Amino acid sequence: MKIGVDTFIWTEVFTDKDIWIIKKAEELGFQAIDFAIAHPETFPTEKVIKELQGRSLQAVTSTTLNAENSLISPDKAIRENGIQSLKQLIGINKAIGSNILGGVNYAGWGCLTGKPRTEEEWSNSVNAMREAAEYAVKVHPALKICVEPVNRFETHFINTAADGVKYCKDVGTKNMAVHLDCFHMIREETSYTEAVKTCGKEFLGYVHVCENNRGIPGTGLVPFKEFFTALKEIGYSGPCVIESFDPGFEELNEQCAIWRKFADTGEELAVKGLANLREIAIEAGA
């Protein structure tokens, strides 16, 4: 099992000043690094390419859309903004050698309507995503676009593994997959094993290993041994990435309701989580 770390552990928006994080992640023993890219227009692609050279880290990315580029919007211009954002992210992924684009890439993160999703929203998002996915097939055929089911307080659109699989099937391209996150799963699924099996090897493309309170993985309620066993059973071979946030962040903490520290630093949380998850993975034979 390849355990990675999200750049959110150290920074809210990855820019030139954060290039040092790449070397630090490798020094701490992580095998993958997830570049969280909510603002692709400011991402320092060329410097990241240079810093990744000669390193063993697997690069992946995740993103969130917003009210101005949500694929579920009734406004065609806003949906087009989302398609262009995804195309820009696809280019970044190709450039840095990443074959995974995860996250809330199908709707505006935190943009709740106060109602269940509608057929119109579903059609809008699926059709817009299909355009982006078909573009990816042409320019970066190795890329998997992985949709992340998140909890009901962050979206009304895709909350469960079953939702994610249905979405991928409706988009209909072979480069669509599901991005499971343990934090969201404990709120929306009835079984970690069944959620993994619902995706299966065909549709499970990416995993975030977050604790139920976003604290140190392995110290809370998430049944990681069960989860890792299920991943092994379906033959999942992608990275399992630790994601959490520092209470000093602004935009993220408002969206994620992070009001207290779970470790003195985000780095401490990640390092202790890495040790815990390695031990659990060994117990699970993963």
Results as ranks from 00 to 15, higher is better:
residue 72 I to H: 10
residue 263 A to W: 00
residue 286 A to G: 00
residue 179 H to F: 13
residue 33 I to N: 12
residue 18 D to F: 01
residue 113 T to L: 10
residue 23 K to E: 15
residue 59 A to D: 13
residue 70 S to G: 09
residue 212 N to A: 11
residue 82 G to Y: 01
residue 198 T to E: 08
residue 28 L to S: 07
residue 241 V to C: 01
residue 161 A to D: 06
residue 263 A to P: 02
residue 221 L to S: 15
residue 112 L to V: 14
residue 63 T to F: 02
residue 92 I to Q: 11
residue 279 E to D: 05
residue 263 A to N: 05
residue 244 S to M: 08
residue 103 G to Q: 03
residue 45 T to Q: 14
residue 241 V to L: 01
residue 254 E to H: 15
residue 214 R to F: 06
residue 263 A to Q: 03
residue 170 D to I: 06
residue 85 S to P: 08
residue 212 N to R: 10
residue 22 I to W: 07
residue 111 C to Y: 01
residue 188 E to N: 02
residue 179 H to K: 05
residue 220 G to Q: 06
residue 196 V to W: 12
residue 184 H to F: 00
residue 78 I to P: 02
residue 49 I to K: 15
residue 152 R to C: 07
residue 206 Y to K: 10
residue 249 F to Q: 10
residue 68 E to R: 14
residue 77 A to L: 13
residue 14 F to N: 06
residue 138 K to C: 06
residue 215 G to A: 07
residue 101 L to G: 01
residue 213 N to C: 03
residue 148 E to V: 09
residue 274 L to R: 09
residue 36 A to E: 06
residue 129 M to Y: 00
residue 1 M to W: 08
residue 169 K to F: 08
residue 105 N to T: 10
residue 240 C to K: 10
residue 218 G to Q: 04
residue 17 K to D: 15
residue 268 E to S: 02
residue 151 N to C: 13
residue 13 V to A: 15
residue 264 D to W: 04
residue 176 M to S: 10
residue 284 A to D: 10
residue 248 G to L: 03
residue 96 I to T: 04
residue 274 L to K: 06
residue 228 F to G: 08
residue 114 G to P: 10
residue 136 A to D: 02
residue 195 A to I: 06
residue 37 I to Q: 11
residue 272 K to E: 14
residue 155 T to F: 00
residue 249 F to L: 02
residue 29 G to A: 02
residue 104 V to K: 08
residue 5 V to W: 01
residue 235 G to E: 04
residue 29 G to M: 06
residue 55 R to F: 11
residue 126 V to I: 11
residue 262 F to A: 04
residue 29 G to D: 08
residue 173 T to I: 00
residue 219 T to A: 04
residue 44 P to A: 13
residue 191 S to H: 13
residue 189 E to N: 01
residue 156 H to R: 15
residue 43 F to V: 03
residue 144 K to E: 05
residue 93 N to G: 12
residue 190 T to I: 14
residue 266 G to R: 08
residue 209 V to T: 15
residue 221 L to N: 15
residue 185 M to R: 07
residue 90 I to L: 11
residue 50 K to R: 14
residue 223 P to G: 04
residue 187 R to T: 13
residue 203 F to A: 01
residue 236 Y to P: 00
residue 134 E to A: 05
residue 234 I to Y: 05
residue 50 K to Q: 07
residue 98 S to C: 13
residue 106 Y to R: 04
residue 248 G to N: 07
residue 285 G to C: 12
residue 56 S to C: 09
residue 198 T to K: 05
residue 71 L to G: 12
residue 52 L to I: 11
residue 64 T to L: 07
residue 216 I to S: 07
residue 103 G to A: 04
residue 195 A to L: 12
residue 266 G to D: 08
residue 229 T to I: 12
residue 106 Y to H: 00
residue 134 E to V: 07
residue 182 C to W: 03
residue 222 V to F: 08
residue 233 E to R: 01
residue 216 I to L: 05
residue 106 Y to S: 07
residue 204 L to P: 12
residue 234 I to R: 11
residue 72 I to Q: 14
residue 166 K to F: 06
residue 5 V to I: 14
residue 86 L to W: 05
residue 85 S to G: 11
residue 180 L to W: 09
residue 214 R to Q: 06
residue 149 P to W: 05
residue 92 I to V: 15
residue 176 M to Q: 10
residue 268 E to T: 03
residue 271 V to T: 07
residue 50 K to S: 14
residue 59 A to I: 13
